[in-house]
Nucleic acid binder design. Structure first.
Lengths: 192, 192
DNA sequence: AATTAATTCGGACAACCGTTTTAATTGATT
DNA sequence: AATCAATTAAAACGGTTGTCCGAATTAATT
């Protein structure tokens, strides 16, 4: 393929525009026409490259999830003790919520769609499984035995820890008035 | 007003039908016509009583939130120690997730809409504030001082505890395969 | 009983949506 | 240079949606 124009390929421009708009306004509130306009592309091209609106969203989500998991993996490589790693993860969440909340918005939006659509549910469960597994392997399995949140498997405990991160982040994202709310995430670290 | 028919008032039938359908299929996936049909009412009546689709949803949510908060209040009156009350709250979440998940679905759906609409955001923040406050007053403020999740205000800690309940519940709701996932909620109790 | 107000009903409208179709253009292959 | 496939473009289609309006019916008030 020649690259006569130094521009990005149309399919990629569409993907980027879709991410921008969806993470800013929500999947249900964005039309394919808006995305096409922002991408500088004719409407029918969206169907040409991604068949469906759902197909487009799936691709956006795949891309986002991949980026997200890689970043979490990178974060969890830093530090040595369980407490250290947990605090790094918490700080990563706090930073993202402040500087790049759109990524979180997209994931939360996906969460609500997963409630009503099985294909989205599978996609999201895969993400949840992965992140929880990362927490289990990199944090809980190196924690001192006397910690281990008494009596529960590290698998189950990891689910709860991720849930705490997730549920607290939602509150931070939705309530921009309470300036000290991001501190609630730090409380998770005091479990260790 | 005479009550010629022993039936419920139309406005109430609409509200009930709206709750049923929205909590089953999601707000964005439900049309006013479906709700009108299930309520046994003509379409235009929805606008007559609730003006907008948004107005109808707001009323459904107000009703739901009220019921929800009253129940949480009732739960937190049982038991004496902080640990006991926390475990009761956890068990309440587990029971609801198993037997009446539609209530949770509606709240999660509202959460995603709150991301993109300010009026919904205010509604939801009010709920979050209330529940977190209940946790703070009824659990954290009677916990032994040496607990208190070192160094943080009970207000902040309550936010995190609610976040843990919320975030873990979402996982339970979305992943019906892992039968032991509801156990992850119990892990929260082991903090006390 | 007559008048007024509140409710119920049926239908229509205008706008928007995702998708499809068909044609024009460009690139690659022989 | 000719042929074929891939891409880009433009327009239209069918369907659904929330909202609105005017008339019919019922209830309340005088």
């Amino acid at each position: 393929m020649h690259y006569d124009k130094q521009e990005v390929h149309q399919s990629q421009r569409i993907l980027n525009a879709a991410f921008d708009h969806i993470s800013k306004k929500g999947y249900a509130n964005v039309s394919l026409r808006e995305i096409a306009d922002e991408a500088g592309v004719v409407l029918s091209q969206l169907n040409y490259y991604y068949k469906n609106k759902e197909g487009l969203l799936v691709e956006v989500i795949r891309m986002t999830i991949k980026k997200y998991i890689v970043e979490v993996e990178r974060i969890l490589m830093i530090g040595s003790t369980a407490k250290e790693k947990m605090n790094n993860l918490i700080r990563y969440f706090q930073d993202m919520l402040r500087e790049n909340p759109n990524l979180f918005r997209l994931l939360f939006d996906l969460t609500s769609m997963a409630m009503w659509s099985e294909s989205f549910r599978n996609l999201l469960n895969e993400l949840f499984d992965n992140v929880a597994q990362l927490i289990e392997d990199n944090i809980l399995n190196i924690a001192t035995p006397e910690f281990r949140l008494s009596g529960y498997t590290s698998h189950t405990a990891a689910r709860m820890l991720f849930g705490a991160l997730f549920g607290t982040s939602i509150q931070v994202l939705l309530n921009s008035d309470e300036k000290e709310l991001p501190e609630a995430l730090s409380v998770i670290g005091s479990m260790f």
